[in-house]
Structures are given as C-alpha cells and as structure tokens.
Computed example of a mutant assay.
Amino acid sequence: MKKLFTLLTLAASLLFATPAFAYTVKPGDTMSKISREHHITLQELADENPQISNLNLIYPGQEINTDKTIKSIAPKTVEPVNVNLSNEEIDLLARLVRAEAQTESLEGKIAVACVVLNRVESPQFPNSIKEVIYAPGQFQPVQNGEINKPADEESIQAVNAALSHQRQLVQGALFFYNPAIATSRWLDSRSTTHVIGQHVFKM
C-alpha cells in the first residue's frame, strides 16, 4: 500500500510539475532582465512567449517560457573597442551618458554608453567616440547643448563598466529612444534588443 501511495504521489508531481524552462515573474522583473538572467536575447524570449503581446507589461506570478534550445543563436564575435581611450573621449562619452540617461538607473546609463561603443565598432558609423557623438542629427544633447555640462560620478562609473565587464550589456543595439516622448517614430519598426528603464534599444 505504501509503495502504491509513493507511485501515485510521483505520478501527481510529474503531472502538475512546472515546465523545466518556466520562470515565474517576481515583483520588479522585466522581460529584459529575465532575458539577461537566462542568457537569451529579448527577441528569443519574445518568440518563445507569443502570449505576451506587450513586452513592457508583465505581472508577478506570470509564467514565462525561457527555453531557447529550439531557437538558439550563436554568440556574435565582435572586435572590441580600443579601451585605451583618451581622458577627453571618456569625459565626452560620460557627458553624453549624463545628458541622455540622467534619470535612468546605472544599468540604463551603461546601456547608453554601450550603444555608442557599438556604433564605433559598426561599419555603419564613424570609428571614433567623438565622430559618433557629433555626427549630425544623432544625439539631442549635442543639438541642445546638454553635452557641454559636466558628467556626474555615476555616468563616469557607467562608462568604465561599459568599457570592461558590462561591454555586452546591449549587444547589437545601435539605437535607443524613449517611445513615450519621442517625436519621431522611425525606430518603432526596427528590431528591439533590450528594454531598460524608459529606453528601448534597437538594432
């Protein structure tokens, strides 16, 4: 009888077990955060969860499928930006980060710095920090003069992180914007790589 009870208990546990690749959303979670923690791109996570129509709208207790075994993408090999940047270049990048992401978290600031570094690596953009930042029409702080204000401590910290252990935070992202205040919507049609704070990062 005891053996039968054990078998029935085992069968029930298998029947009602949570799928191996299911993740239960916790308070404060975002799809971007979940994708990073499970080493899956945001696009892969979206593909695995077609039931979620709005990636910015998830709730605690919701089950998210994090299985990427079917749609795995080999990591891209990129040539790293020369980390031997001049103090002038680091200061310029930190000033842009402050101006673009002063209300964002440290992670959001690092992501903005990484976008600039991604552009330097990309054949679509100039190959220096200064040329990328001052390219015509690319960054609002250049146009409104905010770029000339000094960087704060957290923005400098963000640049240092983007140049080292957080370099791949928003891998592949070449653009970012805040869709809530954007006056131009041309980025809406591009593929989203990450959502961090109020910024959406695009390829």
Rank of each mutant, 00 (worst) to 15 (best):
M1T: 13
K2A: 12
K2M: 14
K3R: 15
K3W: 00
L4E: 15
L4H: 11
T9H: 05
L10W: 07
L10Q: 09
L10D: 06
A12E: 04
A12Q: 08
S13R: 01
L14P: 06
T24M: 07
K26E: 07
G28H: 05
T30S: 13
I34E: 07
S35Y: 07
R36W: 06
R36T: 05
E37N: 13
T41G: 10
L42G: 06
Q43H: 03
L45R: 04
D47I: 15
L55K: 00
I58L: 04
D67Q: 04
K68P: 04
T69V: 04
S72C: 06
I73C: 03
I73Q: 13
I73S: 08
I73N: 03
A74E: 15
V78T: 15
E79D: 13
L85M: 12
E88T: 12
E89G: 09
E89R: 04
I90D: 02
V97F: 08
R98T: 08
A99E: 02
A101C: 04
S105Q: 06
I110K: 02
V115C: 01
V115Q: 01
N118D: 10
R119F: 02
R119S: 03
V120Y: 01
V120E: 13
S122I: 10
I129C: 08
K130P: 01
K130F: 11
I133N: 05
A135Q: 08
G137V: 02
G137A: 07
Q138I: 09
Q138E: 00
F139E: 05
F139S: 05
Q143E: 15
N144H: 09
G145V: 10
A151K: 09
E154D: 15
E154Q: 12
N160D: 12
N160S: 10
A162R: 10
S164M: 07
L169I: 10
L169Y: 03
A173S: 14
L174Y: 02
A182N: 07
A182D: 03
W186F: 13
L187A: 02
R190Q: 14
R190Y: 13
S191V: 12
T192P: 08
T193Q: 07
H194P: 00
G197P: 03
H199Q: 11
K202S: 02
K202F: 04
K202C: 00
